[in-house]
Design a protein around this nucleic acid. Structure first.
Lengths: 228, 228
DNA sequence: GATAGTGTTTTTGGATCCAAAATTGGGCAG
DNA sequence: CTGCCCAATTTTGGATCCAAAAACACTATC
């Protein structure tokens, strides 16, 4: 599914890492949870060895935190960390737009439009599929931009914060959906007009506001946790 | 030495990873070399287990490549990969400058000036110490910028390419040294004037030209390897 | 002489073992 | 009843073991 995988690596370890990552990203393993090696090993049907190596990979990605003799926990991102990360991401996605303008084809532009149509407000209530379409919109632009390192870095930032899709969808305001769609449309318009500077600026503000939403979600979440 | 270390982690593994990384970055372990686990374990005085986990970390960082049942090799970066990475890095260092302008203090500006004085042409021939000063100039700006994620991403890109300092120093043209110093001076001037836009632009072109140098080094290197 | 096939050796990868550190639970004292 | 300390249990981390895969070398055959 992912053509940008740089190295095939040792099957089991990467599968294990991917499986654990998926569980964390989806919220199945909640933020702050302890990751016991024996338990993971049993669940995934492997021995502790690949689990340990997988945890090491996830640690490097910043998704989990490993403390010396205490094991691994899913990192609890502070809102300011989200804002920092999204400021960086915004810059990079802006660069992607700028590059994309110079490499656009009619087909890729059409694909972008199709993808964004899936996000038009009113078609359906927010759901995991629309989240996927949202991701796809951005990923397409990265592909068009044609800089693998750029795509990789953005992906890495993206995967540093578990987003618990179902919970995010529930708290989503219609207002945010409308804004999101409108922002995408503005980006599309700028790309169509081959106006690199505008495309960059629109993408920058778009990503920053998306980051602000995510940061707020984390703020609300931590408030909720204390109250029960 | 590095206050931004997010997790202390399990001592041995991280020490092992750091040791291997250092050997690769310095050129002691050359580009393209095979990394045999048993050999590394013996050299570093540990068992194979921490070595394996360390290799996994380095793999995630992109410094080495691990193929399924064939082991690990130091990645051989193609020049186009260096150019891609440095285009991203340039953008990020530009952002760092922009942010730095709004957070500068007299002390930090003075420290930047001192550091750059060590790079003034004519003082001494290029050497590892001047390379360190060069790194420091950039790191200081990242610190002033005050965005940990930004610093982390730049560091990560930087550590993806072994630079073999001694070899780089030898091939360095005086011309490059002069340019490098002059570019730093222009950045300093823009920072002093609190001109964010200029600082960003100067840093962008500076990093791009540094990347071009590195890419050319890799080009020359691969040409050399074939001839013997 | 070159090439294909086979047996040996080396090396990786997964599983298991053992010791050390941390958490937990219970008991004892204040 | 509360707090502290010590023992038992759990869990991590490093080392070792074993099987499978790959590299290598040798031989036999065309």
């Amino acid at each position: 599914m992912d053509a940008s995988t740089p190295t095939a690596s040792s099957a089991l370890v990467d599968e294990t890492a991917a499986a654990i990552r998926a569980r964390i990203m989806s919220g199945e393993i909640p933020i702050g949870a302890q990751l016991r090696q024996a338990e993971l090993a049993k669940t995934l049907g492997v021995s502790r060895t690949p689990v340990r190596e997988a945890l090491r990979q996830l640690q490097t990605g910043g998704l989990i935190e490993v403390v010396p003799n205490r094991g691994a926990v899913v990192r609890v991102p502070a809102p300011w960390e989200v804002r920092e990360a999204y400021e960086v991401r915004a810059e990079l996605e802006g660069l992607a737009c700028e590059r994309a303008v110079r490499r656009l084809t009619r087909d890729s532009l059409a694909e972008l439009r199709e993808t964004n149509e899936l996000l038009r407000p009113g078609d359906a209530p927010p759901n995991p599929a629309s989240h996927a379409a949202n991701d796809r919109f951005h990923t397409l632009i990265h592909q068009i931009a044609g800089n693998e390192r750029l795509a990789k870095v953005i992906k890495e930032i993206n995967e540093a914060f578990p987003r618990n899709v179902s919970a995010l969808v529930l708290q989503e305001h219609p207002r945010h959906r409308d804004d999101n769609f409108a922002e995408h449309e503005r980006i599309l318009a700028a790309l169509t007009a081959e106006d690199a500077e505008t495309a960059r600026r629109e993408m920058l503000t778009h990503v920053l506001s998306a980051g602000e939403q995510l940061a707020r979600w984390y703020e609300r979440r931590s408030a909720t946790v204390f109250k029960g």
